[in-house]
């Protein structure tokens, strides 16, 4: 990166990064003092210091000041218009924004809290029914006993049959945009086999946690995203992704680009033919998911 010798080289010049760090105050005091001393006596380095100091202005001179291109604005407007309108009553409606703009009023925001509680209740109940984390072991069992696209083998995980339940797997897979989308059928079926650390964790007898399923929640302890398997946390996360009460279709404790992440599959509001796949950080910061895709429902 640097095109000049470092300090201490025979020429004794300051390299570009040292100069830049010096200007940002990132150089330790003693080294900074020595660098300044050098600058006072070195025209070449002083010239670079001046040029570096001008880079901010150089960049700002190229700042875009125009408007968003018409075609981009139009496609954004179309995408937003395709979103279901926010319903103050909590029930999602599939009303394009342009159409909705003729409606009036809209109520008050108090319903959000109630909707959140409803969502939390639904999910907690659902999680209680399935014993929360179904685990990698269950995923492995299901992979062996269920055909792709079939309903998850709940008995193998010690689950109760409940139409409101959904598969929670801990595959620990390092998903990518392509692989997670391709895995939607397995996610929905709960047939994901664990990989890597998940497999090892599944085999660990001392793993605590979900005793009913015989599973393995050491994996969950190793993955920050495991918090998403807890009902209230998941409910809060889902509340940032979906308006109104909803039961997830599937949850997977996994990774995204090497970092812990959760995959949450939700029904698409107003479209029974598709599902929405979200990849979220373990903290599930509102409005800041890692990936989103809308896929045809298998």
């Amino acid at each position: 990166m640097t095109d000049r010798p470092l300090v201490g080289d025979p020429a004794g010049h300051l390299d570009a990064e040292t100069l830049s760090n010096l200007q940002e105050g990132l150089v330790l005091p003693e080294a900074a003092e020595a660098a300044r001393d050098h600058l006072h006596g070195c025209e070449s380095c002083a010239a670079d210091a001046h040029t570096l100091a001008d880079i901010s202005q150089w960049l700002s001179s190229a700042a875009d000041t125009g408007q968003v291109p018409v075609d981009v604005a139009q496609r954004i407007a179309a995408a937003l218009a395709a979103e279901p309108a926010v319903s103050p009553a909590g029930a999602a409606t599939v009303t394009p924004l342009e159409t909705a703009s003729t409606r009036r009023g809209g109520g008050v925001p108090q319903v959000r809290g109630m909707r959140f509680l409803q969502a939390a209740a639904v999910i907690v109940i659902a999680l209680a029914g399935i014993g929360i984390a179904v685990s990698a072991q269950r995923g492995a069992n299901d992979a062996a006993t269920s055909s792709a696209g079939s309903a998850p083998n709940r008995e193998s995980a010690g689950q109760t049959a409940d139409s409101a339940t959904y598969p929670v797997t801990a595959s620990n897979r390092d998903w990518t945009q392509d692989t997670v989308v391709a895995a939607v059928p397995e996610l929905l079926a709960g047939t994901l086999a664990p990989t890597g650390a998940a497999s090892r964790a599944a085999a660990s007898p001392e793993a605590g946690g979900d005793q009913d399923s015989g599973a393995t929640p050491r994996l969950l302890a190793d993955n920050d995203a495991a918090r998403l398997a807890r009902g209230p946390v998941l409910a809060e996360c889902v509340g940032t992704l979906y308006r109104g009460p909803v039961t997830p279709l599937a949850v997977d404790i996994a990774r995204w680009k090497g970092a812990p992440a959760g995959v949450i599959v939700l029904p698409t509001e107003g479209d029974v033919m598709t599902v929405d796949v979200y990849v979220v950080k373990p903290s599930c910061p509102p409005g800041d998911f890692l990936f989103f895709a809308r896929q045809a429902r298998p």
């Binding site: 200007q23 600058l39 006072h40 025209e43 070449s44 002083a46 570096l52 880079i55 202005q57 150089w58």
Partner: peptide, 23 residues
């Protein structure tokens, strides 16, 4: 000589208003 004169000090970047670039 084609070289700029030495600066009086290192221009700091952390304070935009103080930068020689004059943001």
């Amino acid at each position: 000589s084609g070289n700029p004169g030495p600066p009086t000090d290192v221009p700091p970047q952390t304070s935009p208003a103080a930068a020689p670039g004059g943001r």
